[in-house]
Every structure is written in structure tokens, then in C-alpha cells.
Amino acid sequence: MRAYTPKDNVQAKPYYTDRFYKSPQVAKFAPQSDEVFNADLEAIKAKFDVLDAFIQVEQLVVYINAKDNYGVLELLKDELEYTQLSEMSAIDWLADRGGFEVFYQMLSMNKRKRIRIKLFIEDGQAVNSVEKLFRSADWSEREMFDMFGIEANGHPFMKRILMPYDWQGNPLLKTYPLQGDEFAALYEVDKIYGKEAREEIGPEIRDTARVDRYDSDRFSRLGHEVPKGTEITGNEPANEQSYQEDGGVFLIKKFDKESSVIIDDPQR
């Protein structure tokens, strides 16, 4: 068994925040300030519950109930001319609010407007698949399932898409470390060479700042390489890199620096 470490606090943290720092907000406007958006919002409100709505950075954001997502998107597509689902995914709020926020980014080419539909689901709750309305949701929902573990009801092929089928864990959760968990660390070694090879191949070197100046495997000391395993004294003779042997190569003309032409103008 491998030792698992707790992963509640694995994301990068700012190392210093001023006690009195209060972050500003991106300006929100009332939907009434835009005619087209207001009409769209009224059409949605007539049929479904709208929890919140505002305009942020030129786009209307509408919060709806999780069960209404298919209906709202159908309304947007069939009646309000939002013909394309540009993007959909989720945001992890497990630590703060115990669930996920799913967003659908819609585009209307006739009105030149973009709407973002957002809904909140509890941990473990599934959303309704909108794959019947927009084929693009087919892959997006699979990606969401892969990255967050959120399932879509009624999806024809709910399997991982980016990670391998035998992968464990959902990488975009805030409880998943950037450099992978214990399963990810030796995934490829286990799969190709088996668990016996772990010792021989060794752990991954994840420290980007690690410099080993006597390492012959790497190129940290160009021109001073020594074979692996030799005793390093620190004053090895320079081993000049040249791509041809001094005595010349059989059947190959020796490159002569003096007789060569150097092109200064790259545009020649």
C-alpha cells in the first residue's frame, strides 16, 4: 500500500496578502440596461425560475435551477436564436459551498450576443445532458466528467476523454495536486514495466530548480561530461564537442571553416 497524504490544501497560495487589501469587483449592470438581453431574460423568466441575472463584461449571466438546464437551453436555441453552445464546463466550489457551478456559454450570431447560463449542483449530483440539443456538448460533458467527475444524465457515452480510461482521480478538482497524486506518479511505469520496475526506474524528478552539475546524464556541464558512475574530482579535462573526428571521416569530405561561406543576410 502506498501512503496517501491529505490533499485539502494542495493548490498554490499567495505567500503574502495585505491584511487591509480588499479586492475590487468587476462591474455588474442590471439586465434592463440592454434591450436585447432584457427581452431574452423576460422570455426565460416567463417559463423558468431565474435566481439571479446581471450583465458583466458585455455578457448576460443568468443563474437558474439545476433541473431547468435542458429546458432553458432548448428555449434559447429554438426561440431566442442562440444557435451555438460555445463552451461548457464547471467550477469547483466544493470547499466553500459543497458543490460545483456549471456554466453554458451561448452565442447568438443573429443578435451578436453572448449569454452565460450558470447553475449550481451539489457534490455527487448529475446534470441533464444537453447533447440532444447541441452535439458539441457530447465532448464537453465528457471532458467535464473527466476533469470534475460530474456525470450528465442521458449522455450516450459517458467515459473519460482526455485522461486514459484506467486513470484515477479528477485532475481539475481543487483537492488534486498539480503534479499528480500517488496514482499518477508511477502510472506509466506500472503500466509498461510493472510494479517491480518502480525501484529501478525511481521516482519522478519534479523539482524544477534541481541542478546537479556533475550529472553526466544531463547537459548541465556541457563539454565536461564523464561516464556515469565515475568519481568526480572537479577538474576533468574539457571534452570538446565536435561533430567530426580530427583525422577526418572515411569517404566524407572534411568540413573546412576557412573555405566555407557564411551568409549574413537571412533573406538572401
Partner: peptide, 9 residues
């Protein structure tokens, strides 16, 4: 940056 969301295409 300020608190908020943006989608830019």
C-alpha cells in the same frame, strides 16, 4: 485582478 468572470472570444 478584481473579483469577477469574463469570457472573451
Amino acid at each position: 485582478p478584481p473579483v469577477g468572470e469574463v469570457y472573451v472570444a
